[in-house]
């Protein structure tokens, strides 16, 4: 990595009262009631501020925040297609660089790319990889609701094992998705990015600090934040429970909140005693068909994953399942 500045990152968000009051992702969007993408984008735009350009790939967020002639964004915002969020963000960043070199643009303008799991795990993977490889100074936010929810709940590379979707139905032969979620963080980290992290809307301060840090590290190269978004429509649960489901994902160890800062792995939210995965699964209709054996199997896989995380952290950051 280039740059050898001894300057260290210092968060200006110490407590919840430090979040600015001004809304930059305003009301009136048509996201489903209870969709936490709204929460995440509000916080993201509050951190990014007015001097940032949002590049939004096709997905739930794009269609519901900008039905013509309305827009919920207060920032400059561009949308092109499913597969080229990374490419468009690269182009915007390159254009800004030229404008700055020519002296037309006098200030720092950040580029934030936002795309869903379909536009990142599957369709947009090549343009994301290209963006990361070329080292464009872009912050990429992946909001992951674990299927193509916008077009009617089709499976994506992010759909976890056992989940029902319309293309992995539950019948005599098939019992929902039979493949595991793609390790997108592993793919991103293989590009040696300066900063990558996972976040959850249930832990807003943790999420905000990660957005801030990711924006800070765009001075060195591309950064990546992977946010889990429980989908009330596709996961089949009561809209009021969105944040609770996200919190349970963290508490059961299915979703580990960590960051990789210049190659240094750190778990940002430690879980002393894990809850059994059953508590997370039983809230969601998409896992309703799972038998006790299936749940045991998921628990076993999560245990293995937690072991791997603990080994990477060098200490027990995620504790054992509570009795």
């Amino acid at each position: 990595m280039m740059g050898s500045q001894p300057e260290r990152f210092k968060s200006k968000f110490r407590g919840i009262l430090d979040i600015p009051r001004e809304e930059r992702f305003v009301s009136g969007h048509r996201l489903c009631a209870g969709c936490p993408v709204g929460t995440v984008m509000r916080m993201l735009t509050k951190v990014a501020g007015k001097d940032s350009i949002i590049v939004n790939g096709t997905g739930c967020l794009e269609v519901s925040s900008t039905p013509y002639p309305y827009t919920s964004w207060m920032n400059p915002w561009i949308h092109v297609a499913f597969e080229n969020t990374g490419a468009v963000a690269s182009g915007v960043e390159a254009a800004l660089k030229v404008l700055k070199a020519k002296g037309v643009l006098g200030k720092d303008v950040k580029v934030v790319a936002v795309a869903g799991d379909g536009g990142t795990f599957d369709i947009g993977l090549q343009s994301l990889s290209g963006m990361l490889e070329r080292g464009h100074k872009v912050m990429y936010v992946l909001y992951d609701n674990e299927a193509y929810m916008n077009t009617g709940i089709q499976r994506s590379g992010a759909t976890p094992w056992g989940a029902w979707t319309t293309t992995t139905p539950v019948g005599k032969k098939w019992k929902g998705e039979w493949r595991w979620k793609k390790d997108i963080m592993g793919i991103v980290l293989a590009h040696r990015v300066p900063y990558a992290a996972t976040a959850s809307p249930s832990h807003p301060m943790d999420m905000i600090r990660k957005f801030e840090k990711a924006l800070y590290y765009t001075r060195e190269g591309p950064t990546f934040v992977h946010v889990l978004i429980p989908c009330t429509t596709g996961w089949r649960f009561d809209p009021a429970l969105s944040i609770k489901v996200a919190r349970l994902a963290v508490e059961t160890g299915i979703w580990v909140l960590y960051e990789v800062e210049k190659g240094k792995f750190r778990v940002t939210h430690k879980v002393r005693k894990r809850k059994p995965v059953r508590e997370y699964l039983k809230l969601q209709g998409r896992f309703r068909h799972l038998t006790d054996d299936d749940i045991e199997y998921i628990q076993k896989i999560v245990d293995e994953e937690v072991d791997r995380i603990n080994k990477m952290a060098g200490e027990e950051v995620i504790g054992p399942v509570e009795a």
């Binding site: 305003v26 009301s27 827009t71 919920s72 207060m74």
Partner: peptide, 12 residues
Amino acid sequence: IVEPGSSLRYKT
């Protein structure tokens, strides 16, 4: 869309 935050006119 030239007006930022125009969705405020749409009451959900």
